[in-house]
């Protein structure tokens, strides 16, 4: 626990070491995302002549379109775990030498970035409330925030383990960057980050239920918006945890096999 705390503190110091980047990132993402959502959906709603699309009013849709990418950003954490880079240039050596678990280190680092982005998300939400105003249907309580944070931790961990599999391919191939891009594309599409999942046909929505992605963005945003039952939310978390265990097992096997091929270049 002390080590986890120390890694968290170190990574926070790393993040805060570049405060210019921190604030640019915050304002760029928040205002950019809000502006984009507003103009996009106002055109869509005026063209459709309907008060609700996918069961959501215009304001709800804007809120969703703002929260979904911000939530996705939280889940992406540090974006790349840099495992492929560590394998490629021998950076892994130091983690092998230090008496710690490489994955524990990367996982805590990743969650620290998730935490930092979540802080930005809540600041952005406050900005949204002041500038645009919360939709009248919006219901907000402590339980929603707690569920949201739990969801973030689970989804972020699931993303980290999926990303680690892509990056560990570097044990066998030199350049695996495209695999990470592919993973992000699939997650963005099937998690509801780009579009609310209610906009997909029914058969697709049913199929998504069994995939690991559905619980990553759609439920946390919906639970934060007070638009999902606790039971439905809990089911999505359970599904993610099952996937987490399965993918972790696969990651462990890959790590064991990959290490036999590791050459520790760079020293």
């Amino acid at each position: 626990m002390r080590l986890t705390k120390a890694i968290f503190q170190m990574e926070m110091r790393n993040i805060l070491a570049y405060r210019f980047s921190f604030w640019i990132n915050f304002f760029g993402t928040t205002i950019g995302q809000l502006g984009l959502s507003y103009f996009l959906w106002s055109s869509v709603y005026s063209a459709s002549n309907s008060q609700r699309i996918g069961g959501m009013t215009f304001q709800m849709m804007i809120l969703y379109s703002f929260l979904a990418p911000m939530t996705l950003k939280c889940i992406h954490g540090m974006q790349n775990l840099n495992i492929n880079q560590d394998i490629f240039d021998g950076g892994l050596n130091k983690y092998i030498i230090y008496p710690l678990s490489y994955f524990q280190f990367k996982w805590v680092q990743h969650l620290t970035h998730t935490f930092s982005h979540a802080f930005q998300l809540f600041m952005g939400l406050a900005f949204f409330a002041i500038m645009i105003g919360m939709p009248s249907e919006y219901q907000f309580g402590a339980i929603n925030i707690i569920c949201f944070l739990i969801n973030l931790a689970i989804a972020s961990s699931l993303f980290a383990v999926m990303e680690s599999i892509m990056e560990m391919m570097a044990f066998w191939a030199d350049n695996v960057w495209s695999l990470s891009v592919l993973l992000r594309f699939v997650i963005n599409l099937l998690s509801g980050a780009w579009l609310s999942l209610t906009l997909f046909p029914d058969w697709a929505q049913q199929a998504f239920y069994y995939l690991p992605f559905k619980g990553m963005v759609y439920p946390p945003v919906k639970i934060l918006m007070g638009d999902m039952s606790l039971l439905e939310w809990a089911q999505s978390q359970l599904m993610m945890m099952v996937w987490f265990v399965l993918i972790s097992f696969l990651a462990r096997k890959m790590w064991q096999a990959g290490n036999l091929r590791y050459t520790g270049v760079g020293i």
Binding site: L3, M10, A17, G90, N93, I97, G266
Partner: peptide, 26 residues
């Protein structure tokens, strides 16, 4: 292991911060 050609500490932090982490690791 001391690698003359490879940094084992975290470049964006002062050495004292890195040592605090190593204190917990070891």
């Amino acid at each position: 292991l001391i690698m003359g050609q490879k940094a084992s500490l975290w470049w964006d932090l002062p050495a004292l911060d890195c040592y605090l982490l190593l204190k917990e690791i070891y």
